[in-house]
Protein backbone atom coordinates (compact mmCIF):
# COMPACT_ATOMS: atom_id res chain seq x y z
CA UNK A 1 0.00 0.00 0.00
CA UNK A 2 1.42 3.37 -0.95
CA UNK A 3 1.60 6.21 1.55
CA UNK A 4 -0.81 8.21 -0.54
CA UNK A 5 -3.26 5.37 -0.39
CA UNK A 6 -2.82 5.00 3.33
CA UNK A 7 -3.55 8.72 3.73
CA UNK A 8 -6.62 8.41 1.60
CA UNK A 9 -7.90 5.57 3.72
CA UNK A 10 -7.99 7.71 6.82
CA UNK A 11 -10.27 10.28 5.29
CA UNK A 12 -13.96 10.76 4.90
CA UNK A 13 -15.37 13.50 2.67
CA UNK A 14 -18.92 14.84 2.61
CA UNK A 15 -19.95 17.66 0.25
CA UNK A 16 -23.10 19.72 -0.05
CA UNK A 17 -24.24 22.53 -2.34
CA UNK A 18 -26.24 25.27 -0.62
CA UNK A 19 -28.42 27.74 -2.47
CA UNK A 20 -27.03 30.62 -0.43
CA UNK A 21 -24.15 33.08 -0.74
CA UNK A 22 -20.89 32.08 0.91
CA UNK A 23 -20.95 34.95 3.44
CA UNK A 24 -24.27 33.72 4.78
CA UNK A 25 -23.15 30.09 4.98
CA UNK A 26 -20.05 31.25 6.83
CA UNK A 27 -22.20 33.23 9.28
CA UNK A 28 -24.52 30.27 9.84
CA UNK A 29 -21.51 28.07 10.48
CA UNK A 30 -19.56 30.34 12.83
CA UNK A 31 -22.11 32.33 14.86
CA UNK A 32 -23.10 30.18 17.90
CA UNK A 33 -26.68 31.53 17.82
CA UNK A 34 -26.98 30.22 14.28
CA UNK A 35 -25.06 26.99 14.93
CA UNK A 36 -27.44 25.97 17.69
CA UNK A 37 -30.30 26.03 15.21
CA UNK A 38 -28.98 23.31 12.91
CA UNK A 39 -26.06 21.34 14.41
CA UNK A 40 -26.91 17.69 14.99
CA UNK A 41 -29.00 14.97 13.37
CA UNK A 42 -32.74 15.18 12.88
CA UNK A 43 -34.61 15.40 16.19
CA UNK A 44 -31.57 16.66 18.13
CA UNK A 45 -31.33 20.09 19.73
CA UNK A 46 -28.55 22.05 21.37
CA UNK A 47 -28.59 23.35 24.92
CA UNK A 48 -25.51 25.55 24.57
CA UNK A 49 -22.82 26.61 22.14
CA UNK A 50 -19.71 28.65 22.77
CA UNK A 51 -17.27 29.60 20.10
CA UNK A 52 -14.01 31.49 20.45
CA UNK A 53 -13.40 31.97 16.74
CA UNK A 54 -9.63 32.37 16.57
CA UNK A 55 -6.74 29.98 16.07
CA UNK A 56 -6.30 28.13 19.37
CA UNK A 57 -9.79 29.14 20.51
CA UNK A 58 -12.31 26.50 21.41
CA UNK A 59 -15.66 25.39 20.10
CA UNK A 60 -17.99 23.84 22.65
CA UNK A 61 -21.50 22.62 22.03
CA UNK A 62 -23.89 20.46 24.00
CA UNK A 63 -26.06 18.39 21.76
CA UNK A 64 -29.23 16.87 23.19
CA UNK A 65 -30.54 13.63 21.75
CA UNK A 66 -34.28 12.95 21.50
CA UNK A 67 -33.91 10.61 24.51
CA UNK A 68 -32.51 13.49 26.59
CA UNK A 69 -28.89 12.36 26.58
CA UNK A 70 -26.34 15.14 26.18
CA UNK A 71 -23.49 14.64 23.72
CA UNK A 72 -20.78 17.25 24.06
CA UNK A 73 -18.83 18.45 21.05
CA UNK A 74 -15.38 19.85 21.75
CA UNK A 75 -12.87 21.22 19.30
CA UNK A 76 -9.99 23.64 18.98
CA UNK A 77 -9.74 25.93 15.95
CA UNK A 78 -6.52 25.11 14.16
CA UNK A 79 -7.04 27.32 11.15
CA UNK A 80 -9.49 30.06 10.24
CA UNK A 81 -9.51 31.62 6.79
CA UNK A 82 -12.66 33.73 6.55
CA UNK A 83 -14.83 32.97 4.59
CA UNK A 84 -13.09 29.98 3.03
CA UNK A 85 -11.92 27.45 5.54
CA UNK A 86 -12.06 26.30 9.14
CA UNK A 87 -10.02 23.49 10.62
CA UNK A 88 -11.03 21.87 13.91
CA UNK A 89 -8.92 19.60 16.03
CA UNK A 90 -11.23 17.37 18.04
CA UNK A 91 -11.00 17.26 21.79
CA UNK A 92 -13.72 14.65 22.07
CA UNK A 93 -13.91 12.15 24.84
CA UNK A 94 -12.91 8.62 23.80
CA UNK A 95 -16.26 7.36 25.04
CA UNK A 96 -18.07 9.25 22.32
CA UNK A 97 -16.92 7.74 19.03
CA UNK A 98 -18.82 10.34 16.97
CA UNK A 99 -17.84 13.27 19.18
CA UNK A 100 -21.12 14.98 18.21
CA UNK A 101 -19.56 15.75 14.85
CA UNK A 102 -15.90 15.97 15.81
CA UNK A 103 -14.76 12.38 16.51
CA UNK A 104 -11.91 11.70 18.97
CA UNK A 105 -8.48 12.33 17.49
CA UNK A 106 -9.73 13.69 14.22
CA UNK A 107 -8.99 16.80 12.21
CA UNK A 108 -12.10 18.20 10.54
CA UNK A 109 -11.67 20.70 7.71
CA UNK A 110 -14.67 22.61 6.42
CA UNK A 111 -14.22 24.39 3.09
CA UNK A 112 -16.64 26.95 1.68
CA UNK A 113 -16.39 27.39 -2.09
CA UNK A 114 -18.27 30.13 -3.92
CA UNK A 115 -20.20 29.05 -7.00
CA UNK A 116 -22.03 32.07 -8.32
CA UNK A 117 -24.60 32.79 -5.66
CA UNK A 118 -24.35 29.26 -4.30
CA UNK A 119 -21.86 27.67 -1.94
CA UNK A 120 -20.29 24.26 -1.95
CA UNK A 121 -19.40 23.05 1.51
CA UNK A 122 -16.86 20.27 1.86
CA UNK A 123 -16.49 18.51 5.17
CA UNK A 124 -13.29 16.56 5.29
CA UNK A 125 -12.54 14.33 8.27
CA UNK A 126 -9.07 13.02 8.77
CA UNK A 127 -8.80 10.34 11.41
CA UNK A 128 -5.38 10.67 12.96
CA UNK A 129 -3.03 7.79 13.42
CA UNK A 130 -2.21 8.05 17.10
CA UNK A 131 -0.48 5.76 19.57
CA UNK A 132 -3.36 3.38 19.25
CA UNK A 133 -3.80 3.00 15.56
CA UNK A 134 -7.51 2.47 15.40
CA UNK A 135 -8.55 5.89 14.16
CA UNK A 136 -6.31 5.59 11.14
CA UNK A 137 -8.53 2.92 9.75
CA UNK A 138 -11.92 4.42 10.18
CA UNK A 139 -12.26 5.86 6.72
CA UNK A 140 -10.31 2.99 5.23
CA UNK A 141 -13.18 0.99 6.44
CA UNK A 142 -15.61 2.82 4.23
CA UNK A 143 -13.34 2.98 1.17
CA UNK A 144 -10.94 0.08 0.78
CA UNK A 145 -13.30 -1.84 2.94
CA UNK A 146 -16.22 -1.39 0.63
CA UNK A 147 -15.52 -4.47 -1.38
CA UNK A 148 -14.82 -6.70 1.59
CA UNK A 149 -17.99 -5.47 3.24
CA UNK A 150 -20.05 -6.18 0.18
CA UNK A 151 -18.77 -9.72 0.24
CA UNK A 152 -19.45 -9.84 3.93
CA UNK A 153 -23.00 -8.67 3.37
CA UNK A 154 -23.40 -11.37 0.76
CA UNK A 155 -22.05 -13.95 3.17
CA UNK A 156 -24.49 -12.85 5.84
CA UNK A 157 -27.58 -13.21 3.68
Amino acid sequence: MSTKNAEHHRELVITRLFDAPRELVWQAWTNPQHVMRWWGPKGFSNSSCESDLRVGGSFLLNMRAPDGNIYPCKGIYREIVEPERIVYDSEADENHPCGAGLPPRSLVTVTFTEQGNKTTLTLHTRFKSAARKEAANLAGYSTSWGEALERLAEALK
Binding site: L12, I14, R16, F18, D19, A20, L24, V25, A28, W29, H34, R37, W38, W39, G40, P41, K42, P97, C98, A100, G101, P103, L121, L123, T125, L138, A139, Y141, S142, W145, L149
Partner: peptide, 22 residues
Amino acid sequence: SDFIEQYRQHWEQSLDRLDTYL
Protein backbone atom coordinates in the same frame (compact mmCIF):
# COMPACT_ATOMS: atom_id res chain seq x y z
CA SER B 1 -19.34 -0.05 10.14
CA ASP B 2 -22.25 1.32 12.21
CA PHE B 3 -19.94 3.92 13.71
CA ILE B 4 -18.91 5.27 10.29
CA GLU B 5 -22.54 5.27 9.26
CA GLN B 6 -23.56 7.06 12.46
CA TYR B 7 -20.90 9.70 11.90
CA ARG B 8 -21.91 10.17 8.28
CA GLN B 9 -25.56 10.45 9.35
CA HIS B 10 -24.64 13.10 11.90
CA TRP B 11 -23.29 15.30 9.15
CA GLU B 12 -25.74 14.50 6.36
CA GLN B 13 -28.64 15.33 8.68
CA SER B 14 -26.94 18.40 10.15
CA LEU B 15 -26.34 19.69 6.63
CA ASP B 16 -30.00 19.05 5.78
CA ARG B 17 -30.97 21.18 8.74
CA LEU B 18 -28.44 23.85 7.80
CA ASP B 19 -29.95 23.92 4.30
CA THR B 20 -33.42 24.54 5.74
CA TYR B 21 -32.08 27.14 8.13
CA LEU B 22 -30.26 29.04 5.36
